[in-house]
């Protein structure tokens, strides 16, 4: 197999992420974003980061996008289309994004590192290996992230609750 698989998937990622921001209907936007995340999952599999591929698949495509879709359906926005921004602002936004892209690409060109990605340690992204790292060096951040999730849950319930 050649590297062309990577370039095909990269093209699909860019194509669908462009569709995400240029589609008029927000529901279609969410669906395109799900396809974009699926291409990211394939990128993770190609890098042999199997744990991240599964987590990306379950958490991003499963949980987060369903949450987006659920809120979008709940708000029932389909009856009135989103009012269009003036063309001047749109062009200014695209130009600003292109400037960001040119800056990033220019700095990468200046770095001039172009070694191929070689998987020195093919077991790196497996659950066994990552679990060992996660529960030895990163045990404290792991526990703190549980606090973060708890506070986010309490905050979300508090915000979305109807005021008494």
């Amino acid at each position: 197999m050649s590297q062309s698989l990577f370039y095909l998937i990269a093209f699909l990622s860019i194509f669908f992420s462009l569709l995400v921001i240029f589609t008029k209907n927000p529901v279609h936007s969410v669906l395109y974003l799900i396809i974009t995340f699926f291409t990211f999952t394939i990128h993770y599999i190609l890098l042999n980061a199997q744990f991240l591929a599964i987590v990306n698949f379950i958490v991003y495509m499963g949980a987060i996008m369903v949450l987006f879709l659920f809120v979008l359906m709940l708000l029932n926005l389909n009856k009135d289309a989103e009012p269009a921004k003036s063309n001047l602002l749109k062009i200014a936004g695209v130009v600003a994004g292109m400037c960001l892209l040119v800056t990033l690409v220019g700095s990468v060109k200046a770095l001039n590192v172009s070694n191929p990605v070689v998987l020195n340690n093919p077991n790196l992204g497996l659950v066994k290996n990552l679990g060992k790292v996660l529960f030895n060096e990163f045990l404290l951040p792991f526990e703190i992230s549980s606090l973060l999730l708890l506070s986010a849950m309490v905050g979300a319930v508090l915000l979305a609750k109807k005021e008494a």
Partner: peptide, 28 residues
């Protein structure tokens, strides 16, 4: 399949998608 893809191309891909995201924030 991934052996031999230059690291630069990963950086370029991520930069392009990041810029698309920034553009989306600005124009929608």
């Amino acid at each position: 399949a991934i052996q031999g893809v230059p690291l630069n191309h990963y950086i370029l891909l991520s930069a392009i998608i990041f810029a698309i995201g920034a553009m989306g924030v600005l124009i929608r």
